[in-house]
Design a protein around this nucleic acid. Sequence first.
DNA 1: TCCGTACTCGACAGACCTGTCTACCTTAAC
DNA 2: GTTAAGGTAGACAGGTCTGTCGAGTACGGA
Lengths: 203, 203
Amino acid sequence: MAARTAAKASARERLLEAADELFYSEGIQTVGIDRVIEHAGVAKASLYNTFRSKEGLVCAYLELRFARRRDLVARTLTRFRAPREQVLGVFDALGETFTDPRYNGCAFARATSEAPENSAVRKVAEDCRAWLRDLFAGLLTAAGYADPDTLARQLLLLYDGAAQSASLDHDPSAATTARAAASVLLDTAPLTTATPTAQALRP
Amino acid sequence: MAARTAAKASARERLLEAADELFYSEGIQTVGIDRVIEHAGVAKASLYNTFRSKEGLVCAYLELRFARRRDLVARTLTRFRAPREQVLGVFDALGETFTDPRYNGCAFARATSEAPENSAVRKVAEDCRAWLRDLFAGLLTAAGYADPDTLARQLLLLYDGAAQSASLDHDPSAATTARAAASVLLDTAPLTTATPTAQALRP
DNA sequence: TCCGTACTCGACAGACCTGTCTACCTTAAC
DNA sequence: GTTAAGGTAGACAGGTCTGTCGAGTACGGA
């Protein structure tokens, strides 16, 4: 961990980049270790010294995706003040990812469907889902909704569905479709009567 | 195809049943041919004589799921008269499947995420998605909605999201969550002005 | 009785998989 | 100059995978 300048990325970084590209585009089971190390230009021993096993590399790859998603959403949230707009902004951020021609569905959902029950891989995916649900619930609570948990779950359905539709139907507009539906749900869900100030936030 | 009584199912039927159980619960790549034929109590040659390849078996398994889904939805549709209630009935039917303890997410989505691009497996999954989207669009057109296609896509997002949430979050109530959101969308979407009779259908 | 159909059993080829191991190289710090 | 860390190269073990093949069995109909 000494001098890791821009000249040449460390084996760890090159492995993560290769894993990200190959696992995401082709699937985890279909891509073997040999292809990963070849794509990374790294020796096999480096992989096992750094990540202990293929599963370790897979988890690190998912953690990387998770961190990137948090960053993207965090950046989006700063662009808006009102919680309602922040919620819709999350769908805008989702839509941005859809425009990438390499977009291939939710990495966590795909990894989960390839991983065995109770694996470390599934754990990472569950963490990411819980994070997003809690984020929605927090924003909705701040916006003064009477039942933020149910509404958060409904928004999460739209979020998941949009990701799936964007990849399976090759339809990047799924994000705007989901955003429009989310907007309707936000407009019609009851606000709590205890915080009249929140009512004023409604357009 | 002579006397196939209840005494003993044909090799084809036993293979399909085993494939359905194993592929759905554990994934397609993880389950090898040997486990399928062992579970089915069938010789390996029977598999290759009947389905030509593993991919052939996988496609047949998905076709079976597709047919079952069509049957389930068709049965549900007969229980209601009004298109609006029929749409919501589809979500009820979805919720029924969630109550099965073996429920493990949408078989087509999972298969797609394991299959290579442009494979026959993906084709079956796309057929199933197109069928459901067209079904929704048809019902919404009959219900007199001004933009049935967009609304159908929104409902499909909820449908997909519910299936994913039910499995990833182990939350069968995702169906009712989705149904409630769908109900809101149906209540607020504009109807076409050309068919005032459809307006009368609104509660 | 004979024939065709559907099926079983087990061995096998050839490829691919993960993970380990030995041996060697480069670089930087002390 | 020595030492330690991080990396490279490639062979190898031991297993699993799909798909093929030859040989044999059970049975129903002509």
